[in-house]
Design a protein around this nucleic acid. Structure first.
Lengths: 224, 224
DNA sequence: CCTTACTAACTGACCGGTCAGTTAGTAACA
DNA sequence: TGTTACTAACTGACCGGTCAGTTAGTAAGG
């Protein structure tokens, strides 16, 4: 996984170093390993020793970079939130400010699809869901940095659609959750109940149909 | 709580027994306490000692009723699934076989609302979500007993609506998930991100609006 | 009734094992 | 050689599970 080019002392001596000094790269390596462990075994079930081995170092080294196991968890969520914000910003930049609410919401669906398709990005929300009970600060971070940004944006779009007479007059909060819900249930499904013997529905097609249903449900009837 | 006639040695002595024999009631007491602990601290984080104290007995007594901590978890999920099936059957009996798909789906929404409103019933799904990674058999139970029953029923209803020309021709699997998703996101929201300082949206009104949006989105347009 | 003899529900101390976190020492690099 | 990154052995605390002993309840015999 790590791209570390296994360096061998030039020429003769087969001296293979037992480890390399990589102070800058370590934190990310550790968080990658921690993410995998927390996902598979939960926070309490994961051990620092296994996380360290996953990152290719010893347990003691982990504590050179993180105060505690809990600090790893918080840093992991922070990193994921930052990445998500970055990806969202890039996408919004790329498409510019779309003035049509329907198109804009479809575009937002594309972002969700990206999150959905990338298990790496969906890992953090899943961990937050699982551990929010014992670590309320995780939920707090996610809420402040992601939800309190994304939800109002969606609500604004829906409200604009309503003002333009495109959408019916339903509670925009509920509408936003109806939109998100389909994606969430799909993602949870895939990560919890998915079975090998049944055809995994194409996420792309799923999002397409889901948006079609909900946006259609939001639209005014052309005729009574 | 217990109806056991507290027998007092005749006359004077205020002898209050340190514990009472309640063999029949114990398993449910223990599972109640386990549910609360697993919800709050996760399976790995919960301790048998705390579960026992929550049930009002000592740790040793727990092992008179359950083989192991894991057996408690499995029994807990089984009990919840049985209760859910019971509630669903009762509701379906009460309303009879409604032939109109739209009405039937709205009725199904009522069942979801019941699950949503009762934190006791939502506890088990939440635990399954959190622990499915380490205990696939939990997901298996839930899938076999709940999802593989509920999803086909919803899909059948939607398909019937399509045959009657009421619903548009979208993938019924996706439509079913769109319906469920809104409820799920609401429930997760309340249990993870809910904050005291904001008005909790009325679950009744939420379900109403969500069903309105999705069912409307499923319906054929009256006019192109 | 009251004692006595018994059953089984329950307790709490204990054990083997595990894990988060620490530290003394070593290998890598400048 | 000195500094820094890292390892491996260690510690103390905790936890799941066990078990020898205790106590609530019961029923037979007087």
């Amino acid at each position: 996984m790590s791209p570390s080019s296994h360096h061998r002392r030039s020429g003769r001596s087969e001296h293979c170093p037992r480890w390399r000094r990589r102070a800058e790269a370590r934190p990310d390596d550790i968080l990658d390993a921690a993410e995998a462990c927390f996902l598979e075994e939960g926070y309490a079930g994961a051990t620092v020793e296994r996380i360290a081995r996953g990152a290719g170092i010893s347990k003691g080294a982990v504590y050179l970079y993180f105060e505690s196991k809990e600090a790893m968890l918080v840093a992991l969520i922070r990193r994921s939130v930052a990445k998500l914000a970055e990806a969202a910003a890039a996408r919004l930049d790329a498409q510019g400010q779309d003035e049509d609410p329907v198109t804009a919401l479809r575009e937002a669906g594309g972002l969700f699809r990206a999150v959905l398709a990338d298990p790496h990005m969906f890992a953090a929300p899943r961990i937050v869901l699982a551990e929010a009970g014992r670590f309320p600060q995780l939920a707090e971070i996610y809420r402040r940095e992601v939800i309190d940004v994304a939800m109002p944006a969606a609500v604004r779009l829906i409200r604009r659609g309503q003002e333009q007479g495109v959408f019916r007059a339903v509670d925009p909060q509920v509408a936003a959750r109806s939109l998100i819900g389909g994606v969430l249930v799909q993602a949870l499904w895939r990560s919890v109940f998915a079975r090998d013997d049944e055809p995994a529905p194409d996420p792309e097609a799923f999002i397409e149909t889901h948006l079609d249903i909900v946006l259609n449900g939001l639209c005014e009837r052309k005729a009574a």
